[in-house]
Design a protein around this nucleic acid. Sequence first.
DNA 1: GTAACAATATGATATTAATCATCATTTTAA
DNA 2: TTAAAATGATGATTAATATCATATTGTTAC
Lengths: 349, 349
Amino acid sequence: MEAKILIIEDNQDVRENLEELLQLSGYTVLVAPNGKVGTALALKHVPDLILCDVMMPELDGFGVLRILSNHPSTMDIPFIFLTAKTEKEDFRKGMGLGADDYITKPYDDIQLLDTLEIRLKKSARIKKSFDKSGYGLQRFIDETKAQKEFEKLIENREIRKYSKKDIIYDAGQYPKWLYYVVNGSVKTYLINEFGKEYTTNIYAPGEIFGYLPLLMDATYHDNAATIDDCELKLIPIEDFTLLLFNNREFAATYIKNLATRTTEIEAQMIDIAYSSVRKRVANALLKFSKSKNCTSMSILRDDIANLAGAAKETTIRTLSDFKSEGLINIDDNNKIELLRIDKLHQMPQ
Amino acid sequence: MEAKILIIEDNQDVRENLEELLQLSGYTVLVAPNGKVGTALALKHVPDLILCDVMMPELDGFGVLRILSNHPSTMDIPFIFLTAKTEKEDFRKGMGLGADDYITKPYDDIQLLDTLEIRLKKSARIKKSFDKSGYGLQRFIDETKAQKEFEKLIENREIRKYSKKDIIYDAGQYPKWLYYVVNGSVKTYLINEFGKEYTTNIYAPGEIFGYLPLLMDATYHDNAATIDDCELKLIPIEDFTLLLFNNREFAATYIKNLATRTTEIEAQMIDIAYSSVRKRVANALLKFSKSKNCTSMSILRDDIANLAGAAKETTIRTLSDFKSEGLINIDDNNKIELLRIDKLHQMPQ
DNA sequence: GTAACAATATGATATTAATCATCATTTTAA
DNA sequence: TTAAAATGATGATTAATATCATATTGTTAC
């Protein structure tokens, strides 16, 4: 293989340890004790991969990446950050600047070698102009084709009107239709054994819901109700499942959507588990605002509470706090207007 | 259509209201004011569908269903329960006894008619011996075929050994492999901005993890680490995505798994949101016990805490409480043994 | 037009669980 | 072999949030 790897790391122990590991693995290794030397070496020798510490005196890792990204000869070199476990925020910044991967210290030898190998392979493939369109399922999907199938699925369907607070389906029922939101918004929610409700999702116009039981051959596990007056298109389940099984572009897109949804809910879980009511209420407001595509909205306090997973009174108190802090406004008709979306997003704790 | 529907309902208002609605919709309607009369009518007239209240004097809905399920002439008649919104537990019991669907009171006319129509259609189809294998995606899946593909995918792979607490991957990294658990157990977890960890899932032998980013063409959104010493098979992502796109049985099975997982996490969410630490710790213990397939186990208190979404000290206190209540035992090596799995399952609040 | 009900709001209180601190063991690393 | 770190456990304190109660206003039904 004989790939050339540049290590930029100020800590001598770590640097020598890395150098030895990589040499033993058959790589040609260049080392630099700081960002300045590292940058110079990179421009002079054009390595196949750069492994760079973030925290360094003089010129830090971000600076090195910025400089090398601007030189045509070095801009395509795979760039991997080394960060300490504790500096959690660093990695986002690094990835944002265009780093290809990152490794946390203390690193695991095998994991590190794996990472290097994968990055080198990927880089080699890109050089051959292969595989520019992703490494996963995405590569196979013709998005426009799947989109067209979706449009065919929803066109010419019966539209049914629902009023605010109408129930669309209940847990335990057999699915009758798939629902497509034409306008208005819909919530899906769970009810626990003590009658408390928790809103799992809000669906906005253009979105489809009620498909999970079809995929599992089960009854609904959740309930669905309208949040305001709605128009929904009803799609026979037969049409959906046939399309799903017979059209692989559509199936692949669907798998992707399900995976995305899973990721989203998992992110929501840690939020419910450890965030304060303030933060959860702020997130609930932002979610409503996003689904209604508007910063001024009439929402029942119960709906906010069920999305935040908090008691109604607590939610109302929090809204009062937000109002007195100037983050939101509540008018005479109890309509909520988001004034400081930035601050709602960055709610501490 | 002219289907014959039997209504068994003790409340006169509800009964007459239902009768009128169904007659107007073109059904032939039979009514009974209680379970005894209802059973008799059903056996005499053999209706096409039975709509039956749960709470009734003398003979309740469950009793009616039990009797009619034992008569050959009535056992295949679609049976739909009417339950009040508040009696949440009833529906599980009803479905368990073999009811086909249930409707909550107060009911929505359109929803009710939809349900009846679907049940009647389905029943008609079954009579024609069609569609015995499910209504959703399941029907298309040849489980054994998909299973074989899966076995081919995991056979002859490199096995890598990991020690307890080893990190398998970190959030933000590009996926290198798909992991199959040969033995030991693995947790996937999220870290929030304040460094708190939340365990999203535990993987037991035979399970596969780390596929979400492949499906979305993204980097890992979570972290994975071993809980105890492990052996994992590493599967190149290429092989997985190719199989997923080219084999529709495999894709359909995968969609089903993802949907199931989504349902599971959503159920977990309401638990985190509203359950006490006691209940969450009990659930965490049960989850560990399930994944280890054993009632006696060594687990770090931190691991339990991160799965329960509680502080470590609080978790330890709860374990002490469980011990003094005789629900679990903790031996000299801090090994936890579940003594009363039933009580842990039915933890109140 | 009035009673009943729903929705928002806020006060008072109780409960839960996190945090900080300390200590005894056990495990790991030097 | 010894020091350092990790682990489990418990006490004391504090903060967060649910619950219960009540008031006000607006809305709906008869």
